[in-house]
Every structure is written in structure tokens, then in C-alpha cells.
Design a protein around this nucleic acid. Structure first.
Lengths: 125, 125
DNA sequence: ACCTTATTGAAAACAATTATCAATTAATAT
DNA sequence: ATATTAATTGATAATTGTTTTCAATAAGGT
């Protein structure tokens, strides 16, 4: 199952770089301009492949479609509940917040997600 | 639009009390035993109504269907990635974690979600 | 050029949820 | 009790976001 370099794959990767936290639909819209025959399934497939191999990040939110992120290091997001835009939080990842979990009966914490919800500067006007 | 007391609504509420963080499907399965003619749409509608009025909690996770919670106060959850079960975190809600967000360009934070992912005691065996 | 196999495109399948709408029913007034 | 009326229901269709299927295509090595 060695990976091959397809033009579709690099177009998808480039679109994630170019766009700001796009969802799959937006990536498709961007790629289809250069490559009008690409299938939506190919976009989804490649987004997932790229995310699996760590080339991009996949962000699951408390509302709406998944977003994709060219920043790959662990970081949190702020989601504007008005326009839906995502912003990178300028905040270091919490250091082992599971230590705050007093006595969780042998549950072994491997990861956590943290999402901030609010209204962005533009939408406050 | 004043709310009425229907038997369906109270059965849905009772099922959420009885079950442990069920999803809509599980609530339906429970209610349909007593009330075989209930529609799935009615279950979804009432879960959302109850959540809106604060009688139950609705939990959106990073995977799978939404869960419902008879505990209504703000608290976090641990999700077992093996069996999917949800556990209440014995941890006080973070106090204004948005203070850790240095300079977020006028974004006003109203809320946040925090979810722990790992493996529960049972699934570690 | 040839072979093997990953990848593609198109469409269907899928999962979770919401919308539609005529029929029913709870709460209120009569 | 009875009529009124608007919320609610049940059944189904529609939606949204995503994955699966599968025959056809194309990469990359030999």
C-alpha cells in the first residue's frame, strides 16, 4: 500500500494550505477550478489520507462539517458561532489536563479536545 | 407556543434519566418498549426540546452520534474510544480558560467544550 | 512496453438528523 | 361535558456530511 503521488492529492493539499480552515466542500470548490473533473469522493479520500499521515490536521467541531488545517501541531480553535469561521488559539496546549481529573476509575486518558465558542471581532459589529 | 405535557415527552425524559448517556437511538429503543407506536422523529424532537429548556444536556462528541445527559450542570466527559461509553469527569469546570488565550483579536469567548478521549478501565483488560 | 496495484470518478449507500404535513390530542374556554 | 385551537404526533421524505463500491485509469517499478 505504498502511497503514490497524484495530481489530485497535491491539489487538495495545496488548497488546504491556501484556504483558511476550509471544510471538504470548500476544498472541493477550490480544486475543481483547476481540475474540473475531480470527484468529491477523491477530495474526501485525500483529505483523510493527508490527515492520517500528519500532513494536515482534521478538526472536528461541535457544529457543522469537519475542517482541515495546514497547521499540524496541537493547538486549539475559536469558532465564531455567527459566521462559522475558525481562528487558531494563541494558547499553548494544556499540559496533561487529565491530572485535574480526580479519581477516574482507571480510565486512561490519551488525548483531549478543547474548543472555544464565541463571536469574532467582525461579527460583533 | 406554550409547551404541553405529552406522554411521549415524559417517556423520553424518563429514558434519559434511566440510561447512561444514551444517544437518540438508544432512547428510542427504550421508549418504544412502553409505547410501541412512537416515532423516531418524536424522540429527536423531544430530546431537543428538553435540552433547549435545560431539563437535560446534549453532548456533542468528536465521534459518533450526540448523547444526552440527565446531569444538567456544566461538566466534562471522558469518552472511551473502544466501547464508546461516556463517563462524567470528576473535575470542576475550567474557570475562564479563555484568559489563557493571549490577544485573540477581539474575539469574545462565550463558551467552551472539553472532551477527554482514552480507554476505560473495562476495555483495558 | 508491461505488470501490478494504488487511485480515481461516478454513483449509490450510509448515518444522523431535520423538515413536511395531515391527523391527533392536550389545554383552555364555553 | 363540549367545542375550540394550537401544539404535538407519526410517517415519511429530505438533508447534510461522509464513506463505500466498483469498474476504469494511471503511477511507478521491472
Amino acid at each position: 500500500m505504498e502511497r503514490r503521488n497524484t495530481i489530485q492529492r497535491s491539489l487538495v493539499a495545496a488548497a488546504v494550505q491556501k484556504l483558511d480552515h476550509p471544510d471538504a466542500e470548500q476544498v472541493y470548490a477550490e480544486v475543481v477550478r483547476e481540475h474540473p473533473h475531480i470527484s468529491k469522493a477523491t477530495v474526501y479520500r485525500n483529505l483523510n489520507l493527508l490527515a492520517e499521515e500528519g500532513a494536515i490536521g482534521k478538526v472536528h467541531l461541535s457544529e457543522g462539517a469537519d475542517r482541515f488545517d495546514c497547521r499540524t501541531g496541537k493547538h486549539y480553535h475559536l469558532r465564531c458561532r455567527v459566521c462559522g469561521r475558525l481562528f487558531d488559539a494563541k494558547m499553548p496546549p494544556l499540559d496533561a489536563p487529565e491530572r485535574l481529573l480526580g479519581g477516574t476509575d482507571g480510565f486512561s486518558v490519551e488525548d483531549h479536545t478543547l474548543e472555544f465558542i464565541g463571536v469574532c471581532a467582525d461579527c460583533q459589529k
